[in-house]
């Protein structure tokens, strides 16, 4: 075995983004010093890369699918960032690298990527315990008024539970130094964060950043960005639902 015996489980955990901060720091420091463990990390990563091949997906047998589908509601996945230390894989540096890129050179493309990276990193941050919601309720008539007085715009909060996206709550967040409203929905075990802020950029796009799907659109002078780790197709479906239900929603008092 090339890797240190007592470290191999931690290296696996690092690859899977399953370690807490303390263990991540410890194992990264060790890998920086230990050639064998660094080799092991690279080996594991190449195995992962092989298995992430498109043709390999959808291989789980039906029985397994049914057992997964029968799972009770679990906690949302822990943040899946930092799978690979930045110094090992500059190409997969992720949100942090992209945020730095914003400081270093700001072109239109970089701005867009930096924006996506900020949205994703905010999404990831929101999944940490206690960060997801300022107001926690499944009632749209509580979430919507809650934003009043905190922000100077009124994002729509459509009810989507009947389509598999129950409302979970809302919070305020900061993107690009601007206060934004975030409406939180759930999808099975996953979280969908919808960021909303006043802007008229007339864009509509769907991208995948670090494995997270990001859907962006504009409606009535507000810019929206939905971020989640659900498949891109499902997020596209969510976007369509959210937009159609927003437009149908009766105007509220304000």
């Amino acid at each position: 075995m090339p890797a240190c015996e007592d470290r191999s489980l931690l290296i696996g955990g690092l690859i899977d983004g399953e370690l807490d901060a303390a263990n991540t720091v410890t194992i990264e420091a060790h890998i920086a010093r230990c050639d064998n463990c660094r080799e092991e990390l690279e080996r594991l990563q190449s195995i992962r890369n092989l298995l992430s091949n498109e043709g390999m997906r959808h291989q789980a047998p039906d029985l397994l699918h049914r057992r997964i589908a029968a799972l009770p509601e679990l906690q949302p996945k822990a943040a899946n960032t930092n799978r690979i230390p930045g110094w090992l894989a500059p190409g997969i540096g992720g949100a942090l690298a992209a945020s730095l890129a914003l400081v270093a050179f700001v072109g239109p493309m970089q701005q867009q990527q930096a924006m996506d990276a900020q949205l994703v990193s905010s999404h990831v941050r929101s999944l940490q315990p206690g960060h997801l919601m300022d107001v926690q309720t499944t009632n749209q008539h509580i979430v919507k008024p809650w934003f009043n007085g905190k922000i100077d715009f009124a994002p729509p909060v459509p009810e989507l539970a009947d389509r598999g996206f129950p409302l979970a709550g809302g919070r305020l967040d900061s993107i690009n130094g601007r206060t934004v409203a975030v409406i939180v929905y759930r999808r099975r075990l996953h979280v969908v964060n919808v960021f909303a802020w006043p802007a008229a950029s007339e864009r509509s796009r769907l991208s995948v950043v670090d494995g997270f799907a990001v859907a962006e659109w504009d409606d009535d002078g507000l810019a929206f960005a939905a971020v989640s780790d659900i498949p891109a197709d499902e997020l596209r479906q969510f976007k369509a639902l959210y937009r159609s239900r927003s437009n149908l929603a009766p105007p509220t008092g304000s």
Partner: peptide
């Protein structure tokens, strides 16, 4: 391996599906 790499489940979810503790999932 299938649950983790092809189904993208977390350790906790794999533990739940297979009925073993997370330490066993890791090993």
């Amino acid at each position: 391996i299938v649950l983790r790499e092809l189904e993208d489940l977390s350790y906790a979810e794999i533990g739940e599906v297979t009925g073993v503790p997370i330490g066993t999932v890791m090993s």
